[in-house]
Design a protein around this nucleic acid. Structure first.
Lengths: 148, 148
DNA sequence: GTCAATTCCTAGTAAATAACTCTGTATTTT
DNA sequence: AAAATACAGAGTTATTTACTAGGAATTGAC
């Protein structure tokens, strides 16, 4: 029931792009350094996010990546699904194409996994990158207060 | 975000013991056959469940395993924690001993994982083996109706 | 037009994990 | 004594994880 680094790094990278959104393309190495992630590794992750249409890119010098939509329009669930696959504790409750199990209809443990899936998706689909940006802003306010 | 076979098999095996609870010790091979799980593999899982105090055993011929508590007193969360480790999508929101991360206090993505953890634990800790037994009984009633 | 900065693409790899299998010992009932 | 069971630990194969490495293609700046 653990996330891999793909999901964790991916969310942090997207959050980083959200913080810098509206400032033109951000070089991936900047993101990698700020977030303390291997640059080459992050390239592979961002490639998936680009293929999924969550980020866009500009090649060449002064190029980089930026969010394909407003931060309000990108949820953590969107990111996790791209990098970790469908949100489901077991394959038989996969949202997209569930592995057919002949007695799924009559499986009581399956109901448990369905409930887990639904509660996780509720959380992840309700949080957007804009929410995280707001949270960060609040934190910055607070830590500013310490210096008064 | 997937469960391994440990968690899935473990829940099914415990459910099987719950269905047969109050009937004395159940040989593990019976459980394995009914649930279509490798017997030797299930032995390793049940050893963990025994160590954790969820099942008890009787050795020798006519021996077997049985639930250490009433089915009402054993949650799916209890089982999952033994077989899959602490319920947490990332280590920094581990219930027991969270890996110390110096800026955990100021980490906005961490709040996301905390919410995920809480929603999953809410579900898993609210469902007992007795609930599953009841669900199964209802299903049996229904399928009986098809034969009328 | 060249250089530097960048994205893009593919392959390789070491370590860990998953999901078992295999073999044997100890204990208890019949 | 034999059969049925729990208990114990090592060995195995395949997959996944989390990278690293190297280079080709593109573009802006000078």
């Amino acid at each position: 029931m653990k996330l891999s680094t793909k999901g964790r790094y991916g969310v942090r990278a997207m959050f980083d792009l959200a913080l810098n959104s509206g400032q033109g393309p951000i070089p991936l190495n900047n993101v990698a350094e700020r977030q303390n992630i291997s640059g080459h590794y992050l390239e592979q992750l961002i490639a998936l996010l680009k293929k999924a249409g969550l980020v866009k890119s500009v090649r060449g010098a002064q190029g980089g990546y930026f969010l394909a939509r407003d931060p309000e329009e990108i949820t953590i669930g969107d990111i996790i699904r791209v990098l970790e696959g469908p949100i489901a504790p077991v394959d038989c409750v996969n949202e997209e194409e569930m592995e057919i199990c002949e007695n799924a209809e009559y499986c009581v443990t399956r109901k448990v996994w369905t409930k887990v899936r639904d509660s996780v998706t509720d959380v992840l689909d309700s949080i957007t990158l804009a929410d995280l940006v707001k949270d960060q802003a609040k934190l910055n306010e607070k830590s500013y207060m310490f210096y008064i």
